[in-house]
Amino acid sequence: MTTAAALAANPLWYATRAGGTIALVLLTATVALGIAVGGQAAPRIVGRFEVGLLHRNLAALSLAFLGLHIATAAVDPYTHLGWTVAVVPFTSSYRPLWLGLGTVAFDLLLAVAITSALRLRLGRRRWKAVHWLAYAAWPVGLFHALGTGTDTRLPFQLWLYATCLATVAAAAGWRLHRAGPGHRAARLGGGLLVGAVPVSVTAFLASGPLRAGWSHSAAALTLAALGGLR
């Protein structure tokens, strides 16, 4: 049985991919909402309480589906990942780099969730500093999905990734627009950063996941690169 046929006959693979895809969509919505309405860009029609509640609910749903994604991957007999890989990055023998990026994203989000539960004890300034990690988790999680996803080349999946990129870019563009003329340097730097992400993703897709045999070559390359670290 070929690798594709083995995956197609495995319901855990479908559950893993579905959980990861939904988690990415929800994380995209969480990050985009946080960017668009943060600071002085908060909407005037909807109250801050409602926006904050929606933001927290989206974040909680993201973690729930991420938990499903991790659990089904950990018990899948095809990959033999185990539970250690879920919290310790780059320790897997199966696509270690790309799975490691997913672990890094999960660890960042877990840190945000734990500190949010301890927000009153930590204080707003410390909590806010850790909270910014959620924004870093989004691109890391996106590259994890692009690099390790066996369905990355499917048109639907590509359109979904493009929509996620466009959503976050639009939110960032709106935030930069609302920053005002007094923040020219921040707007320029933010604009360059926003533009660099889709360019990097497009270049990565063209040179990697969209090429034939990517999954096999990526596994071999990452094993060779990370083998000396273990």
Rank of each mutant, 00 (worst) to 15 (best):
L110E: 05
A36T: 06
Y78D: 09
A136D: 10
Y161K: 07
F90P: 03
A18R: 06
Y135G: 02
V37F: 13
L154H: 11
T21N: 03
A15T: 12
L229P: 03
P96F: 02
H69Q: 08
L160P: 04
H183F: 12
F156I: 13
I45V: 15
A134K: 01
W98L: 10
G34A: 02
L221M: 11
A74I: 03
L205Q: 04
A219S: 13
T28H: 01
V46A: 09
G182D: 12
R178G: 04
W214D: 04
R121V: 12
Q40P: 07
G34W: 00
T79A: 14
H69G: 04
L27W: 06
S93T: 15
L26F: 11
S116F: 00
L223K: 13
A129S: 14
G180Y: 02
H144P: 00
L176T: 03
G147E: 02
F204V: 13
G147L: 03
F204S: 12
R95D: 13
T16H: 08
G67H: 04
G20P: 05
V88E: 01
G190I: 11
L81D: 08
H183E: 15
W127E: 03
A134M: 10
P155C: 06
P77R: 01
G67L: 07
T16E: 05
G39T: 01
L66S: 10
W83V: 14
G147F: 02
G190M: 12
H216C: 11
L192E: 04
A212P: 07
R56S: 09
G195E: 11
A41N: 08
R125K: 12
G47N: 10
G189L: 14
A218V: 01
R178V: 06
A4D: 13
A59S: 10
A220H: 10
Q40M: 14
L99M: 09
I70D: 04
A145N: 08
T115K: 08
G180D: 08
L223F: 03
F65T: 12
A145Q: 06
A32G: 00
A218S: 14
V168F: 11
A64R: 01
A203S: 11
T222S: 15
R230V: 11
A171I: 10
M1N: 08
W132V: 15
L176P: 02
W83T: 10
V88H: 01
L205V: 05
R153S: 15
L160W: 02
L210P: 00
L226S: 09
G67T: 07
H80W: 09
R95C: 10
R124F: 12
P181G: 05
D76I: 01
V31W: 03
H55N: 03
R153M: 15
L81C: 05
L66T: 08
G141D: 06
T28W: 01
E50W: 14
R230F: 08
L27V: 06
L54I: 15
A171R: 03
W13M: 11
Y78A: 12
L118C: 14
A162D: 15
R124W: 13
